[in-house]
Design a protein around this nucleic acid. Structure first.
Lengths: 197, 197, 197, 197
DNA sequence: TATGAATGAGCTTTCATTCAT
DNA sequence: AATGAATGAAAGCTCATTCAT
């Protein structure tokens, strides 16, 4: 019973992701979500209290998933540079996936700039991202590949700023073929930041 | 006649900016805009074809203004580092102004991820921003303060990515007091990128 | 301008009365009201904040009107018995009008039993009705046609209870032809109450 | 089997009464009723064809119960005045019970003013109430305590009109402390009506 | 019997847009 | 030029009812 309900919610959230990706945060309707899920409008209201609860759970869900994938990627590697490369491979996964996720994500950021609920969820995501950065930097310092006096916290934040800045800029250019350019440039920039004290 | 009309449009656009800043992109109504402008709803429709035209003209207007201010700032300086510092002072102008502008701007990015009209306007803004970066880098290379083999185009793009990434991250943290932290960290990161080949 | 708006509100309220009379308080829709008024649904929302505000203004309006008519009726008469007869003629005006009003009124009473807004409006109506009773009774005592030790307040309340009880009972019987029976019986009962100390 | 079903229906009707009393006639949902009964929504539909059938059976049930209690009360007494007093004690049982019942009852009257099904049920209740009045009056005439030429039918109807009028007025005033006032005033008024030809 | 997941009709409300003045 | 009354499409949400289990 409980399991079925969880699956249903998951199904609706997946549909919501698709719907927001194609219609945009503020244009998306519950009907769109229901259509994407292949269920009736009633189902959406049966499993979620209201529209905002679907969307905030969606943000929660996708940021959690992204983080999990990223964290798993760096966990499999053992040196700082390997972790960094794995992280970047993960972050710049592919034009298609990045486009879909960032389209949705920038919509949520737009909301978060006003809505504390989204803001809090995004902040938790930031914390996770920064932690990945911190882990890589700390390890690199131990290994002696990054300067010992590098500011861990600040650099971790700059890493994520660079990543989000690059992927946003890439998304806005509307050119899938530049994905690789941005990936390489971003990696190079971050490497520079990490190797300079 | 023509002049009066231009002033009217300008008045409405200013009101639209305030209205979007306070109510949010997708919550703002034409009534809100009319109220902020101190005119009737009819006026808004008299000077603009529809809601989207107001908002796209607004994006056009604010990005043009931002660029103009930034460009003027660097024009007044003569060395690369002076220009860079002036640019950053201009970009990280103050918590209040940055918050107002970026709240509106992330909303437009969210739209631009889907709407080609906004996308084109934003791309023109990017071009202008990149040009500022290029100008600074090229001058610095001439002056011998930046490595001669630095990739001008790529670095200019990374500069803007860093700036947008930092200001977005700052905005999402909801802490005005971190404005200075992000400003300094961003300047330091960009300096590092510019001084490392 | 202002006058036109007042007329519009009045028009909508009249339509609301007709709509509630034919569909019932809780079945009536804003579309019904708009249809009865011969306007679009938007107009109803343009002049009233929401559904409840229409309905509470309706109760306010009809109770005020009823009172006014009743008060004017007794004002035109000079002796207690003349006033009483005029009052009863007014209250039991006709099967059609009584049916329409009481159908709507019992719906409001049903709401008022739960909603303080309606309750307050109804209480004001009661006060007015009781005042009419008090006026008649006080005059009758002065004239010597009613016992001097008759309790003015209590008797006024019982008068209205008798009237509402009779008209409700008549309405529920669904027989227009009994209107006259109830009118006479009510008048006789009230006369008895007034003439017995 | 049959018995179980009867008990189930009774259970649902009791729950419906509580639910209507607390949520109001037109706000009450089948879920509310199911919750009050401690059963699932399906059960409600299993034993009742639809929402209206529950509510009409509820009206049937509560009016029958009220009558039964009232009738039993007067049956235990032997003189007209004793019966009248017992009747009034029964009718004005307590602020709590009267409030609960009349809140629900006025809602049904509101429905009955439009719906023949409810109207018929209420008419049957009226008949029962009038019969109680008739019984008391007839006995009183036999005993010589009421005028011999008193119109039995009419007076019985006026008795009930007075009772319903008083209790409705009391309910609408929202003051529990006036319960006793209305009880006494009602009894006095009815006594006057009965003792005056 | 009993459950509660699923449906979708129908409601209130918002608001961009039109247009008579 | 300017107003704001009027429109009605479209949205979120509620809930009686159905039905597979």
């Amino acid at each position: 019973m409980k399991k079925k309900a969880e699956e249903r919610k998951e199904q609706v959230l997946k549909a919501a992701f698709q719907a927001v990706a194609s219609h945009g945060y503020d244009s998306v309707t519950l009907q769109d979500i229901a259509d994407h899920a292949g269920v009736s409008k009633g189902v959406v209201h049966y499993y979620f209290h209201n529209k905002e609860s679907i969307l905030s759970e969606l943000l929660q869900s996708i940021t959690a998933q992204i983080y999990e994938v990223e964290y798993r990627a760096i966990s499999g590697k053992h040196t700082a540079m390997e972790k960094l490369n794995a992280y970047m491979d993960c972050v710049f996964v592919s034009p298609e996936k990045n486009k879909k996720f960032y389209r949705v994500y920038v919509n949520f950021l737009a909301q978060a700039s006003r809505n504390p609920v989204y803001q809090k969820i995004n902040l938790a995501f930031y914390e996770n991202c920064w932690n990945i950065g911190r882990e890589i930097i700390t390890l690199g310092k131990k290994e002696g590949v990054f300067p010992i006096d590098l500011d861990v916290d600040t650099t971790a934040k700059m890493m994520r700023a660079m990543i989000d800045g690059c992927l946003t800029q890439w998304l806005m250019c509307g050119r899938d073929d530049l994905h690789d350019f941005y990936k390489k440039a971003c990696l190079k920039s971050i490497s520079t930041l990490l190797q300079t004290s």
